[in-house]
C-alpha cells in the first residue's frame, strides 16, 4: 500500500477525535461560551467508554456512557461560567484538570489493556477503486460522524435553533429582549459540547487506538480548540481542518514506516508545530476573525 493510499484510507478515522470535539466546541462558542476544558472532557469520555466496552457493554453503550459523563462534567463548567459567572478561562482550565485527574483515576486498573475495535463498513464498488478505495471503507462512527457534521452544518445555518444560538452569542442582550432565555440556551450549547467531546474521547480510546494508556488524548482536545479558531467558527472549515490534522498525524506513521530519517519525537511534534503555524497565519488576519468571530465569546452575561 502506498503512503498516499494509506493516508487516504485512514485520515477520516484519525480526524474523528478532532472533528467531533471541535464541532461540539463550535456550537458552545457560537452561543458565546468558551470552554477550555475539552482535553479533560475527552479524557473522561475516553476512560468511561473504555471501561464500558471492556466489560463488554458494546460500543454503542460505551459511546452513550462517555457522552453522558462528559456532558455532566461540562455542566459543572456551565454552572461555574453561567450561574456563578466566574472567569470562563479559569473555569475551563479547572474542569480540564479535574477531567484528566478523573480519567487517570478511573483508568488505573486498565493500563495497557485492549478492547476490540469496530469493523469497517465498505461502500461496494467504490471501495474497490485503486488508491482512493480505502476512503470508502470506514467504521460506523466515521459514517455517523460525517452525517452528524452535515446535520450540524444545516442546523446552524438553516434552522431557527441555529439562528437563536448564533444570536445569543452575537448579542445576548438583544436575544433576551426578543424573549430568548440566554442562560438556558448557553447551558444547552455547553452540554452539547460536552456530549461531543465525550464521543470524541470514546472514539479515540475504543475505536481509533483501542488500548488504554493514561494521557492518551495527548493534546488532541487542545488542537480541537485551535481548529475552531482556524475554521473561523464555520462548520465546513472545521471539517476540512480536522481531516487535515488527521492526515498530518497519519503522515508521521507513514513516514516512520517508510523509513524517513527523522527522529520519531520530531514527527510526533508535527501536529503541534502545524497548529502553531496555522494559528499564526489565520489569526494574523484580524479582519477575518472579527467578521466571523463571536462577539460575546467568553464574556459573562447577567442582568
Amino acid at each position: 500500500m502506498s503512503a498516499l493510499s494509506f493516508i487516504l484510507a485512514g485520515m477520516l478515522a484519525a480526524a474523528m477525535p478532532f472533528l467531533l470535539a471541535a464541532l461540539g466546541e463550535l456550537v458552545a462558542e457560537r452561543s458565546g461560551v468558551l470552554n477550555l476544558g475539552i482535553e479533560g472532557m475527552m479524557a473522561l469520555g475516553a476512560v468511561v467508554a473504555f471501561i464500558v466496552v471492556r466489560h463488554s457493554g458494546g460500543h454503542a453503550m460505551g459511546f452513550v456512557a462517555a457522552g453522558l459523563a462528559s456532558a455532566a462534567l461540562s455542566l459543572v463548567f456551565a454552572w461555574l461560567a453561567l450561574a456563578v459567572r466566574s472567569n470562563q478561562v479559569a473555569a475551563g482550565l479547572a474542569i480540564g484538570i479535574l477531567g484528566q485527574g478523573l480519567s487517570a483515576l478511573f483508568g488505573k486498573g486498565y493500563e495497557s489493556l485492549t478492547v476490540p475495535g469496530l469493523p469497517k463498513l465498505a461502500i461496494p464498488g467504490l471501495s474497490d477503486l485503486p488508491v482512493i478505495g480505502g476512503l470508502f471503507a470506514q467504521d460506523a462512527v466515521v459514517w455517523l460522524g460525517l452525517l452528524g457534521t452535515l446535520a450540524i452544518w444545516a442546523a446552524m445555518r438553516f434552522t431557527k435553533l441555529g439562528l437563536v444560538i448564533r444570536a445569543v452569542g452575537e448579542n445576548p442582550h438583544a436575544a433576551r429582549a426578543l424573549g430568548y432565555h440566554v442562560i438556558g440556551i448557553r447551558y444547552g450549547a455547553v452540554a452539547f459540547g460536552g456530549l461531543m467531546a465525550g464521543f470524541a474521547g470514546a472514539y479515540a480510546a475504543t475505536v481509533y487506538t483501542p488500548l488504554w494508556a493514561e494521557g492518551m488524548i495527548a493534546g488532541r482536545g487542545w488542537i480541537a480548540l485551535a481548529l475552531v479558531v482556524f475554521a473561523t467558527w464555520m462548520t465546513g472549515r472545521v471539517f476540512f481542518g480536522a481531516v487535515l490534522f488527521g492526515a498530518v498525524s497519519l503522515s508521521q506513521l507513514a513516514a516512520q514506516a517508510g523509513g524517513v530519517a527523522l527522529s520519531s519525537q520530531l514527527l510526533a511534534s508535527l501536529p503541534y508545530i502545524v497548529t502553531i503555524l496555522v494559528l499564526g497565519v489565520i489569526s494574523a488576519n484580524k479582519r477575518l476573525l472579527k467578521i466571523n468571530g463571536v462577539a460575546s465569546l467568553g464574556e459573562p452575561f447577567g442582568p
Binding site: W79, L80, S86, A91, A94, I97, L98, Q100, L105
Partner: peptide
C-alpha cells in the same frame, strides 16, 4: 490530581 481539580472548581464557585 482529582482533589486539586475539585478544589479549584470549589474555589471558583
Amino acid at each position: 490530581e482529582v482533589f486539586q481539580g475539585s478544589l479549584l472548581v470549589c474555589y471558583l464557585a
